[in-house]
């Protein structure tokens, strides 16, 4: 274990404790302490990532990553379900920005389009229509706060220790990751036919997978239509006679 791995482990542990304190656990205290711990953890965590490339790209990375992480924390710690949804949307936007920065244009745009644009708006819609008179008490607290925090720590810990270990400049076993050369960029990310190539791949080699996914969604759609028709069957039949 090198020095920065200690720091990373510490950051992850601190973050987990902070997150646990911040989660709405039904009358539990210590949210302010949790926030402070979380900020410290985030600072420590980010301090271990450096040497990625130019300052513009680096700065953008840190800003977007901070937005994504802070928004994700906000999404699980807010008491108001509508705020949770908004934080989640912001987190998705941050993630999409990171993907765009990494050159994955299609995935970035698809994330925003599908998650932030369609699914989350449906969430909001349901939240607003279903609870016009206020929040239910069961929505205001997080169930299994401890388990959630532990699951989070496992996930983030493994990822950051692993990736952070690779990125560390002092690590002798691994050479630091060099920014991609102009030729590599031209062949991959900046290729003007990037999306066309992605489409070729999806509808060529992976055609069966795409079709299976499409069929599954179609089945879900038909199922939803059947379920809806069960509830409004009688009135619907009456109307159909006249049309």
């Amino acid at each position: 274990m090198t020095n920065h791995q200690h720091i990373l482990t510490l950051a992850v542990l601190l973050g987990a404790v902070g997150l646990w304190l911040m989660l709405p656990r039904g009358g539990a205290r210590g949210r302010a302490v949790g926030t402070v711990l979380g900020i410290v953890a985030l600072g420590l965590w980010f301090s271990q990532f450096h040497g990625l490339g130019q300052w513009t790209a680096d700065g953008m990375f840190f800003v977007l990553a901070a937005i994504a992480v802070v928004a994700a924390v906000g999404a699980v710690t807010s008491r108001n379900p509508v705020y949770c949804a908004i934080w989640f949307g912001l987190s998705l936007l941050g993630t999409a920005g990171l993907l765009l920065l990494a050159g994955a244009q299609f995935i970035a745009v698809a994330t925003v389009l599908v998650y932030a644009g369609a699914i989350l708006v449906m969430f909001l819609f349901v939240l607003m229509v279903a609870q016009p008179e206020g929040k239910a008490s069961c929505d205001q607290m997080s169930w299994e706060a401890g388990v959630s925090a532990a699951a989070g720590i496992a996930m983030v810990g493994v990822l950051s220790v692993a990736i952070g270990g690779i990125l560390a400049p002092s690590c002798p076993a691994m050479p630091p990751i060099a920014p991609p050369t102009q030729e590599e960029l031209a062949a991959g990310v900046l290729d003007p036919h990037q999306v066309a190539r992605l489409g070729d791949e999806l509808f060529g080699r992976r055609l069966i997978a795409v079709e299976v996914a499409g069929t599954l969604l179609l089945a879900a759609l038909v199922g939803a239509a059947v379920i809806v028709n069960q509830f409004s069957g009688r009135r619907h039949d009456g109307q159909q006679k006249t049309v």
Partner: peptide, 26 residues
């Protein structure tokens, strides 16, 4: 100009505009 997914990008950003309307109303 370098964005290869131009049309999809407009779609994505346009779908974010719904938030303003929904949140404003709520």
């Amino acid at each position: 100009p370098g964005l290869d997914v131009g049309m999809l990008y407009i779609f994505a950003v346009g779908s974010v505009a719904v938030y303003g309307v929904v949140l404003g109303g709520w």
